[in-house]
Design a binder for these strands. Structure first.
Lengths: 219, 219
DNA sequence: CGCTATCTGATAGCAGGACTATCTAAGATG
DNA sequence: CATCTTAGATAGTCCTGCTATCAGATAGCG
């Protein structure tokens, strides 16, 4: 197909497609003459993946580039791909609040308590510490009361994720599954958390009142 | 305190503080003369909250403004605050991929299956549908195999969150707790999911090999 | 009282990110 | 052959989140 058709098939404007090619997100078309090129289904899929990572996963162009580098790398063990994907999508903490030492200690304690086999050089460790330190700095240090519930929930989710990826283990798109599952899975998880909040809130604060007004205030 | 002290206490540059005041995120100082103003601990807390929402929660200035509007509104039932916070932090889906009808159906089915009491006008419903449609469009429609595990995990998380908020029910900062727990809780949850991934991956793919090399590739 | 540091409020400028517009020369296609 | 589309290149646009500069005024100290 030509670039115009690719554009129509994906809903991405032609100049934007050219931009992605320039930025190294999308391979160039196969030139049939000095100023004509052909694109195929691989380009369609790739373009959808790019937009998914950006629009749903919230990744920047440069993060997408790194993630796709992992996708394109020769097949590596899931373990390594996971690490590469995590590195690419975990922006180095833009800011380090006060109380990071204490927060790092808390994180180490959680990891120890759960028996998680993770190195402390994992970017998510630092990200978690930043988040906990921020809670603390805002005066909500008691949030750590719930981290064990979070941890248990995450263990369950991770099991499901790995099983899902494992089902694709023999398939070509294994690496892509890891990346997509990691990035888009976040979006699914946070959206569902919102829904579960609303449900739990309805049960807790509306139960028995028969109306929409709650129990903890009079508005 | 004066603005310079406020700046030093929070690590936020003076012009940035002024910018936040202009943007309506931070109340102005109390003027002691036409060109002198005083700030207090409330400003320190507020500023930390703003930076937490932006740096950790990834909110934009305008999203922070909306969230803070909810925080500042007269005390309303948790239910309503939750809705307001969710509205503010759930950006209207920038893009709607193909297959949204099917995805909306899936979401409705999930909600029905879980017995969740949520209206279908909830922005998270649409966000979830967009995420699922994106999975489908990329060729990973089988992701729905895991959504029930996600749902169960989220129910657990939501219970813990509500209990935590409930413990602050009599405290002044209830609304803030809801907002902070929603926004920063996402960061905690996704960071922990990463850690749980690494752990699960280690158990699944490294078990018995005694080394860092994995089982599913030779790289 | 004078001096320097600091402040308020206002306006303008800037850097980065993600496109978007325009242009030239050249195929494509009916 | 006339019209449409394309490749490749360069420049421009829009939005965000600050940052710089300035004028006039105040704080606080010796």
């Amino acid at each position: 197909m030509r670039i115009g058709e690719l554009s129509r098939a994906t809903g991405v404007a032609v100049p934007t497609i050219k931009y992605y090619v320039r930025e190294g997100l999308l391979p160039a078309g196969r030139l049939t003459s000095p100023n004509q090129a052909r694109y195929d289904d691989g380009h369609v899929r790739r373009l959808r993946l790019i937009r998914g990572l950006m629009d749903v996963g919230g990744l920047s162009v440069s993060a997408v580039r790194e993630v796709l580098a992992a996708v394109d790398s020769p097949r590596e063990p899931v373990h390594k791909v996971l690490g590469a994907a995590q590195l690419a999508i975990t922006p180095p903490p833009a800011v380090t609040p006060d109380g990071m030492e204490a927060a790092r200690g808390k994180v180490a304690e959680i990891i120890r308590r759960r028996g998680w086999r993770v190195g402390d050089d994992n970017p998510a460790v630092e990200a978690l510490a930043v988040a906990l330190a921020t809670f603390e700095g805002i005066g909500h240090g008691d949030f750590e009361e719930v981290v064990d519930d979070y941890a248990a929930a995450c263990e369950r989710v991770a099991e499901a994720d790995l099983a899902w990826v494992g089902r694709n283990a023999e398939v070509d798109g294994l690496v892509e599954s890891v990346v997509v599952g990691t990035v888009l899975g976040d979006a699914v998880l946070t959206a569902m958390r919102r829904l579960a909040h609303v449900d739990a809130s309805a049960r807790r604060y509306e139960q028995g009142t028969g109306g929409p007004a709650g129990a903890s205030g009079t508005a």
